[in-house]
Design a binder for these strands. Structure first.
Ligand code: MN
Ligand code: MN
Length: 307
DNA sequence: GGGGAGA
DNA sequence: TCTCCCCAACGCGGG
DNA sequence: CCCGCG
């Protein structure tokens, strides 16, 4: 990929790649060719987490220092082999044709459009009202809170364990972490969100000096924000393996719990993650398999009349 | 990044 | 032919 | 109902 333009054929579909030499991450010098090389390499691991989920992307055609925009609707002249999902929301009535990244050629096509961030819905189009995971988004309000993030994640793991649930951690690729709790796709978003709120409150009770669920930035006092409100339709949590538009081209990477003990926020980027992922495989594979029930925690909450 | 509208 | 504009507006919850 | 937040 040294020339500026070429056509690749993937699964019999032709994808035109343009401006391959364009630098998207200036200080690291990573080009669009590097981005597409990464997407090709990571697709076997990332693809299953995007499949059949309405997708929102952020695009940075002039690189991470240039202008960017969100894209929800499939753009005009989207190739006919790109699958889409039409979502009609009411009040005001609006229709969005979401892209479904169901194959490699779609991901490469998106890469050519300079899509850096990939935000799939928590629910798939098969059960669009029922998320497949409950998530916790740990956001440090100050840089240098990495040790606190790791400690909170490990405490959260223990609390989940006591509730009969298993969580799976990944870096966000920015400063914090995401913990996914895979579920049976039978609970409405509101139930999942309220359950997440309850669990987050248990974590804050255990670690009140470093964790908070306060949504007011000023009242967080430098603590780590446990954001459970991302458990809503259309929210934008970046997918596992998604690159980030930040210096050095970091990516969101699944971690083992042992790695969380010494959490560092950006251990891998679009270049180094390839070796990592080919070595350990998809640590997030269980997130698509281990569909857990909220029944124990929901009956507990019903007894305590928390709801 | 690329299509469409308007000059 | 050139330049400019558009690409998302939403869910949540507290005051 | 608006506002702050992500
Ligand atoms: Mn976050
Ligand atoms: Mn957040």
């Amino acid at each position: 990929m040294t020339t500026g333009e070429q056509v690749v054929t993937i699964n019999g579909r032709q994808v035109r790649l343009t401006n391959l030499q364009k630098v998207l991450w200036p200080e690291a010098g990573y080009t669009k060719a590097a981005l597409i090389k990464y997407l090709l390499a990571v697709y076997p691991y990332m693809g299953p987490h995007l499949c059949q989920r309405p997708l929102v992307v952020t695009r940075w055609p002039d690189g991470i220092c240039g202008k960017s925009f969100y894209q929800k609707n499939a753009p005009y002249h989207t190739p006919d082999w790109v699958e889409t999902f039409t979502w009609e929301s009411g009040e005001p009535e609006r229709t969005i044709d979401y892209i479904l990244c169901n194959n490699l050629e779609t991901l490469v096509w998106l890469g050519n459009l300079a899509c850096l961030e990939y935000h799939p819905w928590l629910s798939s189009i098969q059960q669009v009202n029922n998320p497949d995971f409950l998530i916790f988004d740990l956001d440090p309000s100050r840089p240098g809170s990495s040790a606190a993030v790791g400690e909170i994640a490990l405490t959260l793991r223990e609390i989940l364990w006591k509730l009969g649930l298993e969580g799976y951690p990944k870096t966000s690729g920015a400063t914090g972490m995401h913990i996914y709790v895979p579920l049976e796709a039978v609970y409405p978003y509101e139930t999942v969100r309220k359950t997440a709120a309850f669990i987050a409150s248990l974590v804050v009770a255990a670690l009140p000096r470093i964790a908070t669920t306060n949504r007011s930035v000023r009242q967080r006092e430098g603590k780590v924000y446990i954001d459970y409100l991302q458990n809503a339709r259309g929210q934008t949590i970046c997918a596992p393996y998604s690159p980030r538009p930040l210096p050095g081209a970091p990516v969101s990477v699944p971690l083992t719990w042992e790695e969380v003990v010494n959490f560092t926020p950006r251990p891998y980027n679009i270049e180094t993650a390839i070796l990592r992922v080919n070595g350990v495989g998809d640590l997030f594979a269980p997130v698509l398999e281990n569909r857990q029930s909220l029944k124990p925690v929901l009956s507990y909450l019903a007894r305590k009349k928390v709801f």
